[in-house]
Amino acid sequence: MNRRTIILLKTLTWLGCLAPLAWLMWGAVTNNLGPNPTQNIAFTTGNTALNLLLVTLAISPVRRIFPRFSWLVRFRRLFGMFVFFYASLHLLTFIALYAGFNVSRMLSEVVTRRYITAGMAAYLLLLPLAATSTRRAIIKLGGKRWNRLHMLIYPAAILAVIHFWWQMKPGVLKPLDETVALAVLLAARPAIAWWKRRKERAVTV
């Protein structure tokens, strides 16, 4: 991968990741967000955060299986930061448009609505990951500890999917695609590790 290709791909990634926000802003300016703009904004920001989280989680397994794509790791932080960006917009939608900046209402919702509890927990798990995303933080923490800390992405992803399911009416399967994708991505990790071990053993024997 030469420098120019990487820069080009990064530009495209930025544009792609900003597209959902641009779409919302365009809808806002043209008053085209549908009959329930609040719900539309909440769904678009939350759904984008979850989908980008799945993209982030796909990078490692793809690299392991196809070593020629190992340069993909250079995009992981970018995707991760956009996950945090959309999750923050999603939280802001809740604070501003659902709770109307009313702190007591917000707290009671977080405590009594299990889907909001799950969503909030997922967001809190993302916070230390976003805070330690700089090169300096990695050096300061040391690779091993940084890696261990960043395993929080797994419970965060699971909580995000639970957050999605818990708002559905019984029998409505809208989050199924994301759930299957997450299950595959989580299962891929031990599966790839096992496959690599077997290959190594075959080489040494």
């Binding site: 802003m25 806002a28 008053n31 967000l33 703009p37 609040t38």
Partner: peptide, 13 residues
């Protein structure tokens, strides 16, 4: 209105 959540405009849409 710039945020666009202004649904008053919808009535004259």
């Amino acid at each position: 209105a710039a945020l666009g959540a202004d649904r008053l405009a919808a009535a004259i849409d």
